[in-house]
Design a protein around this nucleic acid. Sequence first.
DNA 1: AAACTTAAGTTTAGGAACTAAACTAAATTC
DNA 2: GAATTTAGTTTAGTTCCTAAACTTAAGTTT
Lengths: 148, 148
Amino acid sequence: MTPKPNSSTTNGSRELGKLIMQLKRLERQPHTFGQAGTLSPSEIHTIDAIGIDSPVLMSELATRLGVTKGAITQIIQRLEGKSLVARAVHPEDARSTLLSLTSLGEEAYKTHLAVNHQFYDRLRSQLTQQEIAAFEKSLVILNDMLEP
Amino acid sequence: MTPKPNSSTTNGSRELGKLIMQLKRLERQPHTFGQAGTLSPSEIHTIDAIGIDSPVLMSELATRLGVTKGAITQIIQRLEGKSLVARAVHPEDARSTLLSLTSLGEEAYKTHLAVNHQFYDRLRSQLTQQEIAAFEKSLVILNDMLEP
DNA sequence: AAACTTAAGTTTAGGAACTAAACTAAATTC
DNA sequence: GAATTTAGTTTAGTTCCTAAACTTAAGTTT
């Protein structure tokens, strides 16, 4: 009935599953980023999504992060309370809110970015140029496959 | 101050970040697996972790999934209620519980495995043999780096 | 221009998935 | 046989999310 998968499918699929579980575990642990204090994974992801291109509307941020507007309202309230994110009314549409990072938020963003780069460089150092290229190509394909 | 990262680091790191966000989103959506009905990501992961090697102790399952014993108690209660997992007292240690899959749980396990293989084959079909090998090598290194 | 409709964001109640810590009961050690 | 360790449970609380009802502002209709 079911076609028998070859061993590469089985092993790769299992390693991918393991990676997903490890990431899931990591996504529960808060981390400290510079002077910004301890941030939950959701908080730093939100800062990241703003830092990449700001100012940004609440609704666009919701799309970037793949969550509802209500979730954005809640997390932005927290980040504003921690003085990491600033709101501003859109000059041409009083309904809209423009989000940007404060200098403290910017610092957290850059620290996080540096941590990520450092981590990724550690991975790269264990691979050849060809392998890095293949891995990055695979990432792009994977991301396309998972696109909503 | 900060050493300027080259573009490969930046791009690869960003793609990896994107993948993490997509996985995080996926990890919120329940799916249907055969006759077992709709299962949450945590439920199917738990079934997966039992299916790989059973019977298994509660405490070992906690280690496999990287969660506390309390979390295992809760999720196993739910899976037992859905008749997907069966408990048995360890014959040589009355404190211990041996977990295994019911036939319904086994079906969910196999269905999930098939879905994973299918997904992974879709990825593989877009890569050369060398690229697949490099990707899988990268996965193993990544998993090692993330090991607790 | 008053009456609709659409769009942006907020509020609220609730659920999933955890943790930490206190607990029970069984096994082991001293 | 008393003390300790180990396996699992319970409970209260946290985080992070959703769905749905809501408010306010903007654009559309006639």
